[in-house]
Design a protein around this nucleic acid. Structure first.
Lengths: 260, 260
DNA sequence: CGAATAGTGTCTCTCAGACAATATTGC
DNA sequence: GCAATATTGTCTGAGAGACACTATTCG
């Protein structure tokens, strides 16, 4: 059958593939790191219409025949120089408000990336600037499209992920100390943590950390040298790390559409 | 500028909106409920090419000018009769493998819906059948497109959500007993829970349940009548409900693309 | 009364948070 | 020694799991 899909039929998947509204599909990346003890995101400054001069998340069109994940990883590698296996990448979700792009209908599939501290990538041709910006310094009103919402979703997801996964280590170099890992938690959550309880907790959680044979590195400002660790095999922490802040009974519900 | 986007420019969002590969965008719903103590999903049986005779999740094209969330809610209401405020809806994620639909390039935005037990909707015109199927009885090899992956992601997300949100109540009627709520957890997680510890836990978690003034309902098979509760204002449970199963150190990482 | 479900109390063990004390380095 | 960081140990209170016991209904 032909013609535009109608409610009686298209919910069965019984639609005409040639009759559909065409969408552009992009990937946008919420690329997070911890730099100088600040939880930061990679932002570009737009140099063209629309939103010229506004901040934006790096991203671009998905190519014909290209998988969504592959499109995100390709951009990550090509345009920021971050090796795929040096970062953690997961899909954050789809953002498809009909007016998110004033020119045309675009659905953006956002990706969340955790990367260790890296030099800021060189601005690509046509970019005013590319830079790491502490997430607390980002002015949501000066971001293009719906990138303020995307960024907020990514930041909140990242904060939650540190609670029940070992992904904080994705912000560290291959080998790291317990103190460095603690600074990641403190930067992402924005709260100080007791170094002694933190040490006991992370070293006591099975699968989180594996000691590196190497003895010890140097201390930046003196102090006893710390032991080195790498990420362990765990993908979920049990028990979880808990944010020490007193949680109110009601908090932001991530993506609920109704009856949150 | 015109022409197809290239790597140097499109990552700035500096692209020509008229030059992009066109995609179809659909919403697919993982509509979950608990029926007769079984954790179940609404499945349709396809009656047309491709995947004729295969099971599929209900879904369809997003219309021009229609928001993604609105498209999901519209389908939910129109085609299953579930009122938007009687269910919980959240986005599950985007699925965009280039070959997920053999006919054309389609990105599906999947939605997760928790609904109380309802009569199975009538098959829409052209549908062989529409029915609630216990998730453990679904044969992933007999599902159309990538719906086995979508369903698996939805089921796993639902199981996780019960741990740290009060959304189990979204599977219950407006007023419910602690015993009914416990059966939801048991059905979704597939494990028996101690009724006494469960009762103490849920009634002691602030914001989870609010007592209904009404005294008590009848018992289906005798026994002392139970008190009635409604959902409380909490959106996150603290402390969380924990699945009693012994978690291995390594488990499935939800959507990580690399370095899980 | 017996069966069945609802709800309370008690004990133990784990674990988070507070914080004392020790270890090891640079200056 | 002193400052700084790392690491271990100790105490206390919250909470999970096991399970005895009481409460209330139906037949």
């Amino acid at each position: 059958m032909t013609g535009p899909p109608d409610a009686e039929q298209d919910w069965l998947g019984d639609y005409d593939p040639r009759a559909f509204p065409p969408f552009g599909v992009t990937v946008d990346m919420v690329l997070l790191t911890v730099r100088e003890d600040r939880f930061s995101v990679l932002m570009v400054e737009r140099d063209t219409h629309p939103f010229r001069g506004f901040g934006a998340l790096p991203g671009g069109f998905v190519q014909e025949g290209e998988d969504l994940d592959a499109a995100a990883v390709r951009r990550l590698e090509q345009e920021t120089g971050i090796r795929r296996d040096a970062a953690y990448v997961e899909q954050l979700g789809a953002f498809g408000d009909p007016h998110r792009d004033p020119r045309m209908r675009v659905v953006s599939v956002a990706y969340l990336v955790f990367a260790p501290d890296l030099p800021a990538p060189l601005p690509a041709a046509g970019a005013r600037s590319v830079s790491w910006v502490p997430v607390d310094d980002v002015d949501g009103d000066r971001l293009a499209f719906d990138h303020a919402r995307v960024l907020a979703a990514g930041v909140e997801r990242a904060r939650a992920k540190l609670e029940y996964t070992p992904l904080a280590a994705a912000f560290c170099d291959d080998a790291f100390t317990v103190g460095e890992l603690r600074k990641v938690y403190e930067a992402v959550w924005g709260v100080p943590l007791d170094p002694r309880n933190f040490h006991r907790k992370v070293t006591g959680t099975p699968g989180f950390l594996v000691p590196v044979g190497k003895p010890a590195p140097v201390g930046p400002e003196g102090g006893r040298p710390a032991a080195l660790y790498r990420r362990g095999p765990a993908t979920l922490l049990h028990p979880a790390m808990l944010r020490p802040v007193t949680r109110p009974v009601t908090r932001e519900q991530s993506q609920g559409v109704s009856r949150g």
